[in-house]
Amino acid sequence: MLMEKPSAGLWRKIKARYNLVGNSCKTCGKAYFPPRIVCRKCGRESKMENKKFSGNGEVYSFTKIRVPPDTFKDEAPYIVGVVKLDEGPMVEGHILENGTEIKIGTKVRSAFRRMYVDGEEGLIYYHYKFEPV
């Protein structure tokens, strides 16, 4: 109910959500995922260009969500984390449990999964997730 059901909102960022396409600033070289409109360092002097990230990185922090928002009420518990991508940026995402113990420093790669299914008749939102290598 309260969650936005952003069919256009998902579509707008589909390259980022499916394929980790972020960007980087030509002025200073800093890489961003998710993509930013303006570089945090360079402000109006920034020049952003698309950059695809490998999806490889390591777990910087994580937790298992046991009390989820409405939209994930049948999915709990699930692990989310902040992953430091090899290219630098830190990004939040689900971390799949595939038998490898998840710890700070665990190496992960990106995977493709459903993020959220809007009931029986609504859209299915696909997204990157991370899984231990």
Partner: peptide
């Protein structure tokens, strides 16, 4: 767009800070 959409709650965010 990036936190709540992925089901990351406030306790979740502070839990990651705590960790």
């Amino acid at each position: 767009e990036w936190e709540l959409f992925q089901g990351i709650t406030f306790p979740g965010l502070y839990a990651m800070m705590a960790k």
